[in-house]
């Protein structure tokens, strides 16, 4: 498949290794991958605070950059940015091409699970990881079945992908509760947000895992911030790093 990478601003500027892992992984899986310069923010920072007008130019600039190269699918290693990009391209722009672009943006987990299913043989990895099922991916993108729902066959697409790695042990925290990041919430409501992040790290730690693995870099940044502050012996990583390592 011909893939255009959408690398959200936080990943681009603070976690470039997630973007490189995503790029390399997709290439190893046989996809043609391109990246276009000039990508901005999905608008989430502004729209999460209700500032739709302030988000428009950013969303348009992002749309323009992503349209530079023709592709079959746009893939991003960040769930909440995918939710925002899709929603904002639809509701904040009137350009037809932006609307059809919105329809082919996929988060990396859903791309590897639903669009171009991962069937590559993977190398074994002896490690215990705890899955961070962040809320936008879980409840808006359906990367898993949220614990509130009564479903006969719950799914967890991240677990399904990672369980293909031989010898990897996968655990999950006791709850799929929000980690407390929430964009500007992490600053505005610093007490509650900090407490939620601490509770989430404790829940991951209690699983006995060596690493927290997730699909949303912003949540991982928040959890990583607690891990670093408290000197907790846990790695915090995007799942693309794991998959790239074993592919």
């Amino acid at each position: 498949m011909k893939i255009a990478l959408f690398i959200p601003c936080l990943v681009n500027h603070f976690y470039p290794e997630i973007a490189r892992d995503t790029l390399e992984l997709l290439e190893k899986l046989g996809h043609g991958v391109s990246y276009t310069q000039g990508q901005t923010c999905c608008g989430q920072l502004m729209t999460n605070s209700g500032c739709l007008d302030q988000a428009r130019s950013s969303v348009e600039a992002l749309g323009k950059a992503l349209l530079k190269e023709p592709c079959d699918a746009v893939v991003a290693p960040a769930a909440s940015c995918v939710v925002a990009a899709r929603e904002n391209l639809e509701r904040l722009t009137s350009f037809e091409d932006f609307h059809s672009l919105a329809g082919k943006i996929f988060e990396l987990t859903e791309f590897l699970h639903d669009i171009a299913p991962l069937d590559h043989p993977l190398k074994p990895l002896r490690k215990t990881v705890s899955l961070q099922m962040s809320c936008h991916g879980l409840r808006q993108l359906g990367l898993g079945t949220a614990s509130e729902l009564v479903v006969a066959r719950p799914v967890n697409k991240l677990q399904a992908l990672l369980s293909r790695i031989p010898e990897l042990t996968i655990t999950q925290p006791s709850r799929d509760e929000c980690c407390g990041f929430g964009g500007t919430f992490s600053v505005d409501e610093r007490d509650i947000s900090g407490k939620m992040a601490n509770d989430k790290v404790a829940d991951h730690l209690a699983t006995g895992a060596e690493a927290i693995v997730g699909y949303d870099p912003s949540c991982l940044m928040s959890l990583g911030g607690v891990v670093s502050r408290k000197g907790i012996p846990l790695e915090v990583m995007h799942f693309s790093a794991l998959l790239n390592q074993v592919t």
């Binding site: 603070f14 976690y15 470039p16 973007a19 490189r20 610093r190 911030g225």
Partner: peptide, 30 residues
């Protein structure tokens, strides 16, 4: 750690030397 807000209970991420866009331009050309 004294800035407050975010850093009241969390460290900031360790900043990388360059952005992905920069790395891509250097290593993959355009």
């Amino acid at each position: 750690r004294r800035i407050g807000g975010w850093s009241k209970s969390r460290d900031f991420p360790k900043p990388p030397a360059e952005s992905f866009a920069h790395w891509y331009r250097k290593n993959r050309g355009e």
